[in-house]
Simulated scan of single mutants.
Amino acid sequence: MCGRLVNLLPNEAMARLFDAAPSNDLPVGERYNICPTNQIAVAVSAEGQRRLRPMRWGFLPHWYTAPNDGPLLINARAETIAEKPAFRDAVRQRRCLVAATGFYEWTKGTDGARLPWYIRPADGAPMVLAGIWQDWEAGGERLSCVALVTCAAGGGMEELHHRMPVILSEPDWPLWLGEAGHGAAVLMKPAPAGCLTWNRVGTEVNSNRASGAGLLEPLPA
């Protein structure tokens, strides 16, 4: 599961990270609480060139007649992605990379309250998540949209949640983007032990309107 992202990287840094040509309409500024349906920067590869494009986080199958015509598909499960009609063409032909500083996950308190955790790479480097995308069009409306690929939790994250986004290391980017041939399915696996760290943060982030650096402040142990 991955329902909120943090991305503090400037667009220029993401373009350098991916060696991609940036679009001029990318979201700007540090973003501490990226929610589904928000625009995110996505690296795609076509005709021998990588591009950094803005896309709506929330995948729209081709049969949707409007963006709200069905469930909001923000994640695609690695175990079934090649079989699901909504995702199977995209995972074969339209894979992408999504840079993030970290993401949030929630556990339940003894009283049932949603308790947020901020999860990030242990080495402080940006994380790069596996995604799938497509251009959707209906009723005169056109949107580029993306879903993040998720897998069973690993790297110790099992204690927080049973799912996690697929995190790709730099040597694997060409294979995921389709630049290095076939066989990208082997990349859809949990993160290795020790690569992530996490801490509790305040419940302010439970609101999709919350923003600012204070959302990442760790709560006292």
Results as ranks from 00 to 15, higher is better:
V146Y: 01
A191D: 02
V44M: 07
E179K: 08
R16L: 13
L175N: 08
A180T: 01
P10N: 02
W106F: 10
R16A: 15
S23L: 12
V28S: 15
R53K: 13
H162S: 14
P171L: 10
V6N: 08
P126E: 14
R50E: 04
D135F: 02
W117V: 07
V201N: 03
A76R: 01
L52S: 06
A138T: 03
W117K: 02
D172M: 06
T150P: 02
A122Y: 06
R51M: 14
P10V: 02
V98T: 07
L9R: 07
T80C: 07
T107F: 08
P61T: 01
F18C: 05
A152D: 15
A138S: 14
L168N: 10
L129E: 13
A185Y: 10
M1C: 13
I74W: 03
R50Q: 02
S207K: 05
G124F: 10
D19W: 04
T65A: 12
G156L: 04
T110S: 15
H62N: 14
E79M: 06
R209V: 00
Q49T: 08
V28N: 14
Y118R: 12
Y118S: 12
K108P: 07
F59T: 08
P67H: 03
F59Q: 11
C151W: 11
N33R: 05
A185F: 11
E158Y: 02
P121W: 01
I74D: 01
I74Y: 02
C151R: 05
R142Q: 12
C151Y: 06
L196F: 14
V201W: 00
Q134F: 00
L115E: 15
E79C: 11
R163K: 14
P71A: 13
W198F: 04
E79A: 03
W173I: 08
L52W: 06
L60A: 04
G212C: 03
R51N: 05
A100K: 13
E179A: 03
C195W: 00
L187W: 05
W106A: 13
P190I: 01
A221F: 01
G181P: 04
G178A: 07
M55S: 13
P22H: 04
P174F: 04
H162P: 04
Y32I: 04
E158K: 08
G112V: 11
H182S: 15
Q134K: 11
N68E: 13
R114P: 12
G70Y: 09
R88N: 13
V128R: 06
I167S: 07
T110Q: 15
I34V: 15
A138G: 01
A90Y: 11
H62E: 10
G140A: 03
L8T: 07
D69R: 03
T80L: 09
S45Y: 03
V149W: 08
V28W: 10
M127G: 08
V98R: 13
G124I: 11
D111R: 12
P61Q: 03
F18P: 10
Q49A: 15
H182E: 15
G194D: 00
R56F: 07
P126G: 09
R114Y: 10
Q93A: 15
V91H: 08
L148P: 14
T107Q: 15
A191E: 06
M164S: 12
V166A: 14
N208V: 15
L160A: 03
R56P: 02
A153K: 00
G58H: 02
E158F: 03
P61M: 00
